[in-house]
Design a protein around this nucleic acid. Structure first.
Lengths: 197, 197
DNA sequence: GTCTATATATTGATAGAC
DNA sequence: GTCTATCAATATATAGAC
């Protein structure tokens, strides 16, 4: 990897990128392996030298994507001292990423039912960890009295699905910039929890 | 239609029901017309005497479903006098319906990208009307000073997608009853808007 | 790493009998 | 309103050469 400015990506990454854009646009079942090959600029057969099946390709995308989400949540939760500060950071970064990365996030959040049961369980484990990060911050705030909500688990679900849903309705040519959405959602969530700042 | 207790549904309705359950479970592109026929208890060919194509079947489901949603929103908005009362009713009924009718709601909300452009536009028109019902209530509350939010349009989007998302995460064997979810979401939304009750 | 060619299954939809 | 039989297209995936 000499520091070439135009360094070409490995072929397997080009396949991955092609699959993300196709799955996001057409859905997993709506995408043919020919379509992926075409977007990656190679023959249908070449795809199979990098991934053993279409489902395996989705699994790899889902695994990497959800690991990035989990890391982002950990990083965001560490930004701030009090629970309201931590949650504000979480919601802002989570929504921001779902807007900016809406194409990939749609696949990572909404195409999971197409995974095999084994692969789905591995992804579910990651997603449980994501929920745990958010819930622990909410519960910390309830302990200190800086948050108030009757059912923290359900509130946690609402907060996370709100953020994920940004990827579904966000449009690049829409009226809101990712930062505006992130800031607005941060405010909505802090109010949902009656946060004392 | 003699008032038989066990009156059998028309065959076209059986096809519709079969398609809803299959599309909800497997997605539009993940469902074959043979699968629909099998669930409806008939041969693959029999499906085509009632609907001219698989996409037409989805369109009919989407049209009926979104018309029901629109009617529900109008009905709910009429329940109450002040904007906070109206919005409370809207959020409660909307979330309740998305939990109880989660199977159909998943199709009606999430399979729309599979529609032809013409059909998609017809459904979009219905969905714009749905948004208008909710936004007008939010804006009425801002006028009276009973609501407060910096960007009512984005708040409206957040409120509606929260409700729709219930259909995606709700599980019949989960820990929450539809009524509990509806009541909790009502509280969350009223706080999001800083409602003065 | 990539190709052409192809095996094999499944797809959406139709023909024509009853 | 439903069936059996079937068409034509497309699907995923593999074989074997370079």
């Amino acid at each position: 990897m000499r520091g070439d400015v135009m360094a070409r990506k490995p072929a397997s990454d080009r396949v991955l990128d092609a699959a993300v854009s196709a799955f996001s646009e057409l859905g997993f079942h709506g995408t043919s392996t020919r379509e992926i090959a075409s977007r990656a600029g190679m023959s249908p057969a070449a795809v199979y030298t990098h991934f053993s099946s279409k489902e395996e390709l989705l699994f790899e995308i889902a695994r990497r994507g959800n690991e990035r989400f989990l890391a982002l949540l950990h990083r965001a939760a560490a930004q701030g001292v009090t629970p309201p500060e931590r949650l504000a950071s979480i919601v802002y970064e989570f929504a921001l990423f779902h807007a900016r990365g809406h194409i990939g996030a749609r696949v990572v959040n909404y195409e999971l039912p197409a995974l095999t049961t084994e692969h789905a369980q591995e992804i579910k484990a990651l997603r449980r960890q994501m929920v745990d990060v958010v819930r622990s911050v909410i519960e910390a705030g309830l302990q200190t009295g800086e948050f108030d909500t009757p059912d923290p688990s359900m509130t946690c679900v609402a907060v996370m699905t709100m953020g994920q849903d940004v990827a579904r309705w966000y449009r690049e040519d829409g009226r809101w910039a990712p930062e505006e959405i992130a800031a607005h959602y941060r405010g909505l969530v802090l109010r949902m929890l009656d946060a004392k700042l």
